[in-house]
Design a protein around this nucleic acid. Structure first.
Lengths: 122, 122
DNA sequence: AGTGGTAAGTGCAGCGTACATCTATCTGGT
DNA sequence: ACCAGATAGATGTACGCTGCACTTACCACT
């Protein structure tokens, strides 16, 4: 097939990375590597570290999160992120948007089940 | 700021266009303009016509759909699309993928409601 | 000294999406 | 007969997320 990708990543929402990072940091301030592991266990298989760190930097540039270096005695220094007020607003906005997406998917799946059960598409 | 849009289109799934077109054509063969209206009423506000027609051509190139010209007496000629066997397989695959996304969104929203109700994020 | 885990970052190309613009045909009103 | 508007399909282009590969640096253990 020309186009290739069988389910690039299962048709996840656009900007799912930003959205998920907002949620996780909203739950509790964290650093990138920690978020990388959390996000992997959240159902999304193998997240690209580069993309994650990049997303965090961009989100900080956009004022959604703020960060500070944490020099631990064990291991390399790490940058811990926390939500700003603006980031919190965005989290609420994203939650609303994803709730709509959730409804959209419900409709999609319902209609899909419908055509399958009717064997219109064998 | 890299992306200032509040909810570009509500965080819809990647390739939602292809997926939705597969579903609608799977329900019943149709032409582009018809799909354009159906897809608009499906919850997604204002779909880009250019992108839709382009997506259909690409899908045909990839062998997911086949088309034939229909010269109706009323209005311009229109290209009617129907699913191929391969397209049907892809529809099943997409449905599976979107079902996973649906679950992912359920988890996301549950956790979001959780932090909101605990007022960790006021 | 070397290996492996922790932690963060850059470079780059592909592709979907959004937005604007274009062509052509047929219908309805004046 | 003429023109606006609906119907129908298509291209050009720029932006940004994403994915893959690669690099740097610190620490611990052998």
């Amino acid at each position: 097939m020309t186009n290739s990708n069988d389910e690039p990543q299962g048709g996840l929402p656009r900007n799912y990375l930003r959205a998920t990072l907002l949620l996780l940091i909203g739950e509790e301030p964290a650093h990138g590597y920690d978020l990388l592991e959390q996000i992997t266990q959240l159902g999304l298989g193998k997240v690209d570290p580069g993309g994650l760190y990049r997303a965090l930097r961009v989100m900080e540039r956009d004022g959604l999160v703020s960060s500070y270096w944490e020099h631990s005695t064990a291991g390399p220094a790490r940058r811990t992120y926390q939500l700003t007020d603006e980031g919190t607003e965005w989290l609420h906005a994203w939650a609303g948007a994803l709730r709509e997406s959730h409804r959209y998917l419900s409709v999609y799946l319902k209609r899909y089940d419908c055509i399958v059960s009717r064997r219109l598409v064998p």
